[in-house]
Design a protein around this nucleic acid. Structure first.
Lengths: 194, 194
DNA sequence: CCTATTTTGTACCATTTGGTACATAATTAA
DNA sequence: TTAATTATGTACCAAATGGTACAAAATAGG
């Protein structure tokens, strides 16, 4: 294989672009700052991302989501009490020291921005969030089987509740409520997991 | 008072601009389409909105929110069962025939878009959403006094839960879930009002 | 060492952006 | 009728946008 060698790794530059997109959203992230963050020039970028900014955005969302989902799946499968894991997962949203506090959920942000702007991307993001919901549902279902959880509510209902809680908290916490209020709110919404 | 007469009403043009901002967000709403929707030219616009697009956006948010809040307060004060009113208020979010289904909540959208972009506007919107929360809290509090509601949870907790539910549903329903699932989700989250 | 191949960096570009300048139109008060 | 005042419409503008063209650089194989 001849040719000048690439100076970047695709996954790495996508990860760097993700941070910009997550913080600023699609439109507000200029290609200039994206390129700067990625550390590559326009020549290379448009050679490897023929779809331009939109392609980069979609790949950012997919990669970020898949990493997150994989990480959660792994943690749950390794946990001896998945319900407790879920609780911690939500309580982290009340932690002010969390770096990502003001950024919300990358997928949720994208859903809001793309909902009226780009049907394809919206469906893509909706699918990713759906995968998170499925994780919730499966985790709850298995916990029931393992007698870790007693409830007459369906796993589907609880899973959809958890996803909606996730979506809501990622908006609500941007109102700068104090940690204690958020914690009480989360605790209340997780009583179903008791 | 001398001078050429105005051809527009400020509140009316703000309302028209609100529809564009609500649907597209701040950045994606171009001044061209805003002006077109408002039916006025640049000359008039920049004369009355010295702050330009940003001022228009903020006034749109304030006016929309104040109208909504006033309307809700009025409905509640006239209702003989405010708790039932609240339930209907939420169940409308599961109605597909609702015109605004895909648009989410104007304030929630703005909070997401402005959170990392403009601290002032973010605080403004957070304040407006807070007013909605206060309505929830006061309504619940009064319902308790009137024995319309029995619960050992604080009104503040329930109010914050309702606001978070509102925020969540306005994101979640953009995933195009079917009405029945959304209804079940809402029903579950409103059991506290039973 | 030369050639084919692949990547890189930069100069360039059309379009769109929000916003301004200013002449003109439409009023009222004197 | 005229002068002062206020609103309107349009021509214009600098800056920023995402994207393209292309020459130069860096490699591998022959």
């Amino acid at each position: 294989m001849a040719g000048r060698p690439k100076i970047f790794d695709e996954q790495e530059v996508i990860a760097k672009a993700s941070n910009i997109f997550w913080e600023k959203g699609y439109e507000a992230a200029s290609s200039e700052e994206l390129l700067k963050a990625m550390g590559i020039g326009k020549g290379s970028f448009y050679l490897f991302f023929k779809g331009g900014k939109k392609e980069l955005y979609e790949k950012s969302l997919k990669q970020y989501a898949n990493n997150l989902l994989s990480s959660i799946r792994k943690d749950i499968s390794e946990s001896d009490n998945p319900i407790e894991y879920l609780k911690k997962f939500f309580f982290q949203l009340a932690d002010t020291t969390n770096i990502h506090k003001a950024k919300g959920c990358f997928m949720g942000n994208a859903l809001v921005e793309m909902a009226t702007k780009d049907e394809y991307t919206k469906q893509l993001v909706a699918g990713l969030l759906n995968e998170l919901e499925i994780i919730f549902i499966n985790t709850v279902e298995k916990a029931k089987e393992d007698n870790l959880l007693m409830t007459n509510k369906s796993s589907k209902l609880i899973g959809s509740h958890l996803l909606n809680l996730w979506n809501g908290l990622n908006v609500t916490r941007r109102m700068d409520a104090d940690d204690a209020s958020l914690e009480a709110l989360i605790k209340f919404n997780l009583e179903i997991l008791t």
